[in-house]
Write a protein that binds this DNA or RNA. Structure first.
Lengths: 336, 336
DNA sequence: TTGAAAGCGCTACCAA
DNA sequence: TTGGTAGCGCTTTCAA
């Protein structure tokens, strides 16, 4: 019942162990057909299967890619956060013939998952790892990078002193195009609703917004544009009566708050005010769609490229976002 | 940039490699604190992390559990088929400090995943593997079992000549209890709607149904009870007018067909006829709920028990199903 | 064409 | 308490 080794196969076939190794690992060029068939027969008879651990040790390769999420995958998969990424990751890994390791072992009691635990990490089980998720501990990323691990991060993460390879939605360009499409429909007076989150992904949206406003000579006198988060009653009053005809919101919840506030003031979306959202939406908002599945695929490609060519330089990639038409944008209406 | 090994640490700390090994693998009893701290300092300075492949080769253990599904996980996760199982698997693996390998590499062009590919399999990457999914190739299971792999199968699978350890919902008992609960409410005349699927899980439901009918002295003259699948127009006519007051259906789709057919005959569920379903349901059917998450957890426990004690005998486990009350069962009404 | 042998990095046994 | 050393099963070089 013990697993047979190459030496067992070799003995049975009456050849040397190295011959067996050559045959089973497909380096078959210089082995006569007849010998090969004897070996293959012995392999079959004994039910020989190569020992993965030994191969890994020898080859420094695994055909194993890691997926590290900073919290449990499946509870969130349902909420679609990880889900689409994983879809792309799994699909591409399957196409390329890699297996996937889910790093689940380092969960802490608070539900977060760390990379290092007791100064050690298991990422080297895999040939390379995709990191994804919110609120990464930047120290860990920096250390990982310094330790020379092969990884890519989904979502932009800037860490001083390290150059993290990231696959990121191009929020700058996406936001810029979204604003441009509003301008195309005739909007000139804009307002921006900002969240209280200070993170790379939001910096990008703000940069894209500002760029479009300046380039297209649009007007924005909103607190959000000047850096103030949230939506005040005063601004709702302003929006209800002021010159603004289009609002760009960082989140669906802000957009919803806006719609409610406007309704209370007798204003409708999109008849009185057009609203677009800078994140994906299952509902009918006009919005920016993050191509999550594609990002997952690209992350695997980026990783595999480096696994298979260790000389290859780490690269970050921007992935274009789609503009999704909904029912919350219309042409501007002149206010009385 | 090359990963440091124990020998590097040893040199820096001025001790032998075996001392380093002892310290980093926690076998620390007989090492003076002072030495240990020197070693730990060297570990930290070099950023040493143990090589998983080497450990694995040496220890024959990985703290890695495999998950093999017979098709892609994520597309189906959404439909809730794999999802709840995986939730339990992930949760328990995390608690026990194991990582998970998703075997994605053996996808074939038709979307199915095999275990063996070119006579080889990668399951030995993991200490043990949970197999789950529909339509397993029984040959592969038999071979796996013969080759002495450590695995458990979610869902019952009988293979001649092999004794597959399975974690299965207890359909026999669950169906029996469901029928008993109908009988408790006063139902005596039953009908059974059978699918055209011949699989262990359905055999069990049928066995449980038969057992309850016989034990409780109930009546059933339905074709389904006698072995005929589907739901004919004739039977709908019979059910609309006959003595039956309760119907047990193997699937939601059969139950829906029934409801539609009865409605066409002026009969309502549950006023005229109570209906219970032998699978889970997001809707309002009275049904049997498969405790998927718990099964996932138990599968991991069963696997880990054997990983950690190779002497332990493989066991199959039955997991009790819950009866879920819906809106499709009522007390029987005397037919006019 | 074939085989002997040197490691891959680690653990654990045994001797000092 | 410490360290030398023998492998774990495999790949690959080098020599026959």
């Amino acid at each position: 019942m013990k697993a047979p080794r190459q030496s067992d196969v070799a003995r049975l076939a009456g050849v040397s162990q190295s011959a067996v190794s050559r045959v089973v690992s497909g380096d078959v060029d210089r082995i006569p057909v007849e010998t090969r068939e004897r070996i293959l027969a012995a392999v079959k008879e004994l039910g020989y299967v190569p020992n993965a651990a030994a191969r890994n040790l020898r080859n420094k390769r695994n055909r194993l890619l890691g997926v590290h999420t900073f919290e449990a995958v499946f509870p969130h998969a349902r909420e679609d956060f990880y889900f689409e990424f994983l879809l792309g990751i799994e699909e591409r890994a399957e196409q390329l013939g890699y297996d996937l390791v889910l790093f689940t072992s380092t969960g802490t009691s608070d539900g977060r998952r760390r990379i290092y635990r007791d100064g050690t990490n298991r990422l080297n089980l895999a040939d390379g790892t995709v990191l994804l998720g919110a609120a990464t501990d930047r120290e860990e990323l920096a250390r990982l990078w310094h330790d020379g691990y092969l990884f890519v991060h989904i979502g932009r993460r800037e860490v001083p002193g390290a150059e993290i390879p990231c696959i990121v939605p191009d929020y700058i360009d996406g936001t810029d195009r979204l604003v441009a499409s509003l301008a195309d429909r005739g909007h000139r007076y804009f307002a921006y609703l900002r969240q209280g989150i200070e993170q790379e992904a939001y910096f990008d949206r703000r940069a894209g917004y500002r760029a479009a406003v300046e380039r297209l000579g649009l007007h924005d006198r909103s607190p959000g544009f000047r850096g103030e988060p949230g939506l005040s009653e005063e601004w709702l009053d302003e929006l209800a009566t002021g010159p603004e005809t289009a609002v760009v919101a960082e989140s669906i919840s802000l957009a919803e708050e806006l719609r409610t506030g406007l309704a209370a003031r007798g204003r409708q979306v999109p008849e009185d005010l057009s609203v677009a959202v800078l994140e994906g939406s299952g509902e009918r908002w006009d919005c920016l769609a993050i191509p999550r599945k594609e990002i997952g695929r690209i992350a695997i490609d980026a990783l595999v490229a480096r696994v298979e060519d260790p000389e290859a330089a780490p690269v970050s990639r921007l992935v274009a976002c789609d503009l999704v038409a909904g029912e919350t944008v219309a042409a501007p209406r002149a206010k009385e």
